[in-house]
């Protein structure tokens, strides 16, 4: 048997008749013919039953449904685990209230206020560059998709921490508006 065929057979065996709950809450059935379909899993007493789109159902063992492992970028996670990455978590507001940044481990919000309105970016975030020495950090907020080094959607912000990590300077608009926002953590 060729190695590729062996690998294919082994893969099919490993995923045969397995059910996976994705991070969006939907459950899919990984069929042993290499295709998949979305299914519904209901509980009836102690029993768990899968409802298929074709109208059929099947009782399964509870342990048959696994949670999907979300593959994260290891570099991004290493940055997020760094002292600067951890210091970023929280709610930051500029002194004049014009800029607001909220970072949780998996979600970020940027609000830019001006006299003429509001701009808002929300979604997942990641650290693109991290300079521990100068306490600079480049974050990508709310990107929609990524293909290699190309990202679609969202906004990039260039941030710098004060030495005590209590103040954040947003230098993103320094070139266009010659303005650097100074933000303080409020939560």
């Amino acid at each position: 048997m060729k190695p590729s065929l062996l690998l294919a057979a082994l893969s099919a065996f490993l995923i045969a008749d397995s059910y996976v709950t994705l991070d969006n809450g939907k459950t899919i059935h990984l069929k042993d013919d290499g295709t998949w379909e979305e299914v519904k899993v209901i509980k009836k007493g102690e029993r768990e039953i899968v409802l298929r789109p074709d109208g059929t159902w099947e009782e399964i063992r509870p342990e048959s449904v696994e949670g999907a492992n979300i593959i994260t970028n290891k570099v991004d996670q290493r940055f997020k685990d760094s002292p600067l990455g951890r210091a970023l978590l929280g709610h930051w507001i500029s002194e004049d209230g014009r800029e607001e940044l909220i970072f949780t481990p998996n979600h970020a919000i940027l609000k830019l206020r001006s006299r003429n309105g509001l701009k808002s970016y929300a979604g997942k975030w990641r650290i693109e560059e991290l300079d521990e020495e100068h306490k600079r950090i480049k974050v990508n907020i709310g990107e929609g998709a990524r293909l290699g080094f190309v990202t679609f959607g969202g906004i990039m912000r260039t941030l710098r921490f004060s030495d005590d990590l209590h103040t954040l300077y947003d230098e993103s608009d320094r070139l266009s508006s010659m303005r650097v926002y100074r933000l303080h953590k409020v939560k």
Partner: peptide
């Protein structure tokens, strides 16, 4: 194809379409 593209523009980083 993407890998080829990345290597062809190795000096280009943080390309963002928005």
């Amino acid at each position: 194809i993407l890998a080829l593209g990345v290597s062809a523009f190795a000096d280009v980083e943080n390309v963002k379409f928005s």
